[in-house]
Design a binder for these strands. Structure first.
Lengths: 292, 292
DNA sequence: CAGGAGCTATAGACCACGTCTATGACCAAC
DNA sequence: GTTGGTCATAGACGTGGTCTATAGCTCCTG
C-alpha cells in the first residue's frame, strides 16, 4: 500500500465540497481528472469511497472513515505551508547571535533595535562568550552567527569583515598631566594600567605589541567587563586599554582623554562569522543584510 | 502555494532517516530523485530545509518546524491506510440489516452467527420494522440491506430472491378433529382464526386470497408477534396463519398440525433488498455472499 | 413528456514531469 | 593515497496525470 499522496488531496477536496466538479475547480483540474483520481484511490483500497448521486457525491461509510483521517492530515499540511510562508517572510522564527558583551552593547545593539522594529515576531537570542566560545557555539549549531573581533582563521567559518575599531589607552582627570604629551611604550609602563582580564582578542593584541618592542605589560588591575575598564579609568585607578569607539561619549564629555603614543596601535576589525557550507536562516541573512 | 503533496512524503522519509539515500530506498526511488524532490520543496518555500553533511542530511531550524507538522500528517495517512486495509478485509467495520422480527429469528440468525464467528470485529446492527419501514431505512441509508418478504416493486431497490416460504394454517390439540380432514375455505371460516395484526405481507396475501374466492376472513384474534401466533394456536385459542418454516419444531413434536386445504396457498419468497445504484459495503457484500 | 442543466464516467490523445542512469564533487576514515 | 560513503547535477526517457470530447444518468421545468 504505497499510494500517491496527491490522491488524498483530491479526495479531501471531493469529500469537502461533495462534488467532483467543485473539487476540480478548487484544484485547478478538470472534472475527469478528479473522477479518475478518486477511482484510483478506490481501486487501491478495494473499497468504494463515494456514492455518486445526481447532484454530486457523498461519502460512504468507508469513505467517511478515510476522511476523518485525511481531513486532519490535510489541515496539518495547510498549517505547515502557512508556517513556512511566515518563516520565509520573517513573520515568525528566531535569530541567535553570539558575541562579546561589549560588541553587543556598542555595536550590535542599534542594528538589533532596527531589526526588532521591522520583524517584531522574530525571537532574539543573544549568547555572550569569548571568541573561542562563540566559535564553538557556532559549530555546535547553537547560534546562527557570531560577532567577534578579527582576525579569525578557521576554514569552516565564513567571515565578513565589518567596521574597523581602534583600541587605545585612556585616562581620567587623575592623569591630566599626560593630556598633551606623546608617550613612548616604555613611559606608559611607568603608569598603572588596567586591562581586560579575560583571554580576549584585544588583550592578546596589546600584549603582543609590547612584546614585539621587547617589553612586557603587566596590568595593575584586571577587570572582567568593558564597563569596568571605563569606570576604573574615570575614577583614576589607572590607564585603561579600551576600544575608542566604545568610549566616544566619555571622550566627548571630557571625563576621559586618549593617551597619545609614538607608535601606531594596531587597528581591529569586527567580523561577522557564519558557518561555511551551512545555509543561513532567512532571519540571519536578513540581519546581516541589515548590518551591511 | 500549492505543492505536490508527494514531496512531503519524500521530505518525511528524508528527515526521518537523516539520509537521502535511505529515503530513496524506503520509497523505492533513486537518490537523485529524492535530492531533486527536496530541492523542489526548498525552492517552493524559499527556505533551506536540510543541512547537507558528508554522512547524510540533518534538518535546519526551518526544516524541523516543517517536520513537526508533516510527521503528524504522514502518521495520520499511514493510520488511514491501515484502517482502510482493515475495513477491506473485514477486520473492522459494521453491518446494518433491517427486517422483520420473525425473519431475523428464524431465517437470518444462523447466518449472523456464522458471520460473526468469521468476522468478530464487524459490529452488527439489527433494525426491525415492517416492510415499508425497512424500505425507508434503506433509502435513508440507515441500513445496508433489508430482509423482507417478496414481492417488492421499487425501481430504486435491487432485490435478490432468497428462500421460499410457505404460509399455512395450523392448529393445536383443541382442533384435533381437523387433523385428517381437507377443508374448504368456507369451512375454515367456521373456526376461530388468529392472524398477525400488523399490516404485513403475509396478512395482506391471505386476505386477498379469501377475497378472490368471494370470502372475507375476519380473525377472532389479532396478535402482534409471530411467537404469539404460535403460542395461541398451541393453547387452542384458534387456528393460526403462520409460516410453515417457522413452526417446524412444533409440527415435528406434534404440538401443532397443519390444516389441509383444498386450495393452494400462495408461496412467499424472502427477498434481500439493497439500494440499486448504491455500492454495497464490503461487510454487506460478504454477508449476502454468505447467505447464497 | 420533452428538453435542458446539472452531475459523473469513459475513451483516447498528448506532453510535462518525475524518474532514471551516469557522473561529478565532496568528505571522512582507513 | 585510496576507498567508500555522502549529495548534486546533467540529460535522456517514458509513464502517468491531465486534457478534450462525449456519453449516460437524474432531476427539474415549461
Amino acid at each position: 500500500m504505497t499510494n500517491n499522496y496527491e490522491l488524498y488531496k483530491v479526495f479531501y477536496w471531493a469529500a469537502k465540497t461533495g462534488s467532483l466538479t467543485q473539487a476540480a475547480k478548487a484544484l485547478y483540474l478538470t472534472q475527469p481528472s478528479v473522477s479518475h483520481a478518486i477511482k484510483q484511490l478506490e481501486e487501491s483500497f478495494g473499497l468504494t469511497l463515494f456514492y455518486r448521486n445526481a447532484k454530486g457525491v457523498s461519502l460512504t461509510k468507508d469513505g467517511a472513515v478515510l476522511y476523518s483521517y485525511i481531513e486532519q492530515s490535510q489541515t496539518l499540511i495547510q498549517l505547515a505551508e502557512e508556517k513556512m510562508a511566515s518563516l520565509k517572510n520573517l513573520d515568525s522564527g528566531e535569530l541567535r547571535i553570539g558575541g562579546s558583551d561589549s560588541l553587543f552593547k556598542h555595536y550590535v545593539l542599534p542594528y538589533l533595535e532596527e531589526y526588532h522594529y521591522r520583524y517584531p515576531n522574530i525571537k532574539l537570542h543573544l549568547n555572550h562568550g569569548t571568541t573561542p566560545e562563540v566559535i564553538s557555539f557556532l559549530k555546535e549549531g547553537r547560534i546562527d552567527m557570531g560577532v567577534v573581533r578579527m582576525p579569525i582563521v578557521d576554514s569552516q567559518l565564513e567571515v565578513r569583515e565589518s567596521i574597523q575599531l581602534q583600541d587605545c589607552f585612556v585616562a581620567g582627570a587623575r592623569f591630566a598631566e599626560l593630556k598633551d604629551v606623546t608617550l613612548t611604550l616604555e613611559m606608559l609602563l611607568q603608569y598603572p594600567t588596567i586591562l581586560f582580564s579575560r583571554n580576549s582578542r584585544a588583550r592578546m593584541a596589546i600584549s603582543e605589541l609590547f612584546h614585539s618592542y621587547g617589553y612586557q605589560i603587566k596590568p595593575e588591575i584586571e577587570v572582567g567587563s568593558v564597563d569596568l575598564l571605563i569606570e576604573f579609568a574615570r575614577k583614576g585607578l589607572g590607564i585603561s586599554y579600551v576600544t575608542r569607539e566604545f568610549v566616544t561619549k566619555e571622550l566627548e564629555e571630557g571625563s576621559l582623554f586618549e593617551i597619545k603614543l609614538d607608535v601606531q596601535l594596531p587597528p581591529a576589525f569586527v567580523g561577522i562569522m557564519t558557518m561555511r557550507n551551512v545555509p543561513l536562516s532567512s532571519s540571519a541573512a536578513k540581519f546581516i543584510e541589515l548590518m551591511q
